[in-house]
């Protein structure tokens, strides 16, 4: 079974607004806080969602070469979490 072009387009037209709404809500939570873990968690959720969505969008853009970008994005947000956690828990970043 092959997916026809118009199905892809319909799919995108439906998912894009929903996804953008989610992205905006995450951004609002990230900017409002009120505590640091709230912000970090919101950024996390935002970026992992984004990473998943980038893969979906790559189908719409007909460019499979765009997919590795999603993996790299997820990888770096993992690193971001780690050093914010480290910042909050220790005296020196290197110890």
């Amino acid at each position: 079974m092959t997916v026809s072009e118009s199905e892809v387009i319909t799919f995108i037209i439906i998912t894009l607004p929903i996804y953008m709404a989610a992205f905006t809500l995450y951004a609002v939570r990230a900017l409002k806080g009120p505590t640091i873990p709230d912000t970090v968690l919101a950024i996390d959720a935002m970026t992992y969602d984004l990473a998943a969505f980038l893969v979906v969008l790559a189908i719409f853009f007909r460019s499979p070469i765009l997919i590795p970008t999603a993996i790299v994005l997820a990888l770096w947000v993992y690193a971001l979490d780690i050093y914010v956690a480290k910042y909050l828990e220790s005296k020196e970043m290197g110890e």
């Binding site: 690193a79 780690i82 050093y83 480290k86 290197g94 110890e95």
Partner: peptide, 15 residues
């Protein structure tokens, strides 16, 4: 991207 590796090693395991 490779630089994440030493970075997480420093941050997680200590300098």
């Amino acid at each position: 991207t490779a630089a994440v590796a030493p970075l997480v090693i420093i941050v997680i395991f200590s300098l």
